[in-house]
Design a binder for these strands. Structure first.
Length: 432
RNA sequence: CGGGCCGUAGUAUACCGGUAGUACGCCUGUUUUGGGAACAGGUAGACCGGGUUCGAUUCCCGGCGGCCCGACCA
């Protein structure tokens, strides 16, 4: 794996400086696992139904996910940009979606009486934007993407981060001069998506799912992660690892890949989708190109989405136990949770030294330097779910001899029961 | 948008037609420190509006808000 550089993100943190607090109990009316754990551990805070703040720990996870997605989108030629959330009604009139897009947040300016939408998706912005570049056939294909906050006026926000009214999303749009080229890119995007879901820890439970293609193509494809928290029903083919969405099961009763008749019903969360838009938006905006002979043609488009906040919630749903979350290493807020037990000056010195050493070696570490009981620290550590827990105490100090690198500390994986004694130098490769 | 459940300190809860008790948290102090420590003292609360009543946090109506089921969700 390549190194992920997160500019501006502090690698290490002392827990005494973290302003958020863990709670023993989740809000009583919160049922979904992701909401309960993320709120208890101080990763998110709910402002209202379906609208959450990302707190420092939650934001770190979000940034990890962002960077995994960026890397994969860049790898398939995506150019990152950032489009406005605030959008004029005129653009939505052009595509007839001002009236028909049910979950569009619409409002009127008090001053100008102009009407606006808060973007739930960006075809209405990206299409005229590309048109404005006045591109020739030589300039295509074009791939642009953004990671941005989206708004959807959902009739019912639910399941914590899984269905919000404000959420973050990566949306990539591709522009082609012919359908073959779109097909080719569509496959590439599909592969990139699988890489992303694998890396964030959902590889084993995420399936390519055939869904309704609307009016422009036979199928679109969703990426569905199987979990009880899911609100979609998919029919899974165990042979070839694809599935069919409930909405098209009536017309497509067998596996579309291998024809298998026995499909297994599962609940799942839609974590991403890819869609061939063809010329629906380019023709609405008059986005054309001139070919070699100077003849005009409609630009062919595709769109590719991943809901980041939803993905974050889904990772929690896929990785937790009775004590808390269990973050996959690639998206964990920190690689190591260093826990100091006791306030004896020798222990403090030793723990501080280990912390500094980790810091120097670019290991992302959260240092529990609080004057709290062992039980409380362990409970918090399990709840927060950082992949590696390192304990430094009087007990481990008794094992500590010689140079710092050779001194022993206790190491335990969050996903495992047993701890073991390891030398400090062995910690330096964690999270690398 | 239809249906259901629910709104009491920061959190979780209790009781009550006569203005609220407990636990955790938080603050001060002392003692503690390997699985959510102990003691002492302190802090903090009835979603909003209307009605009934001598009196409403409690009963009634309306609103607002939260969660759940359903519908909806290229």
């Amino acid at each position: 794996m390549e190194e992920i550089v997160v500019f501006g993100t502090i690698l290490t943190m002392r827990q005494t400086e973290l302003f958020t607090r863990t709670r023993k109990e989740a809000p009583k009316d919160e049922v979904s696992v992701n909401a309960r754990l993320l709120m208890r551990a101080g990763f998110v805070n709910k402002l209202m139904a379906g609208v959450y703040s990302l707190l420092p720990l939650g934001l770190r996870v979000h940034q990890k996910i962002e960077n995994i997605i960026r890397r994969e989108m860049d790898a398939i030629g995506g150019q990152e940009l950032l489009m406005p959330t605030l959008q004029p009604k005129a653009n939505w009139d052009k595509t007839d979606r001002w009236e028909t897009y049910d979950s569009l947040f619409r409002f009127t300016s008090h001053y100008t009486k102009n009407e606006y939408a808060l973007g739930p998706t960006h075809e209405e912005v990206v299409t005229p934007l590309v048109q404005d570049q006045n591109l020739s056939y030589k300039d295509f294909p074009v791939y642009v993407y953004q990671i941005q906050t989206k708004f959807r006026d959902e009739p019912r926000a639910k399941s914590g981060l899984l269905r919000g009214r404000e959420f973050s999303m990566k949306d990539l749009y591709s522009f082609h001069t012919n359908e073959k080229d779109l097909e080719k890119y569509y496959e590439k995007a599909r592969d990139a998506y699988f890489k992303i879901f694998k890396e964030v820890g959902l590889g084993d439970v995420t399936y390519l799912t055939f869904a309704s293609g609307g009016s422009f193509s036979k199928y679109s494809h969703e990426f569905q992660t199987v979990t009880d928290a899911g609100e979609d029903i998919i029919y899974l083919c165990n042979k070839c690892k694809v599935a069919v969405n409930k909405e098209i099961i009536h017309e497509q009763k067998d596996c579309p890949e291998c024809g298998e008749k026995k499909l297994k019903e599962e609940k799942a969360v839609e974590v991403g989708n890819i869609f061939k838009l063809k010329t629906k938006y380019s023709s609405a905006f008059g986005l054309k190109f001139k070919d070699e002979k100077g003849k005009e043609g409609d630009v062919i488009m595709g769109c590719y989405g991943i809901g980041l906040t939803r993905l974050l919630g889904t990772v929690v749903e896929a990785h937790y136990d009775k004590d808390g979350m269990i973050w996959p290493e690639a998206v964990a807020p920190f690689a190591v949770h260093l826990i100091r037990l006791g306030i004896d000056s020798k222990v403090v010195k030793f723990a501080d030294d280990v912390y500094k050493k980790l810091e120097k070696n670019n290991v992302e570490v959260l240092y529990d330097d609080r004057d709290a009981s062992a039980g409380e620290k362990f409970a918090d550590s399990d709840l927060i779910g950082i992949p590696y827990r390192v304990v430094v105490s009087e007990k481990t100090l008794r094992q500590a001899q010689g140079k710092l690198e050779k001194k022993k500390v206790e190491l335990k994986k969050r996903s495992e029961k047993k701890e073991k004694l390891v030398g400090v130098d062995e910690l330096m490769k964690l999270g690398a």
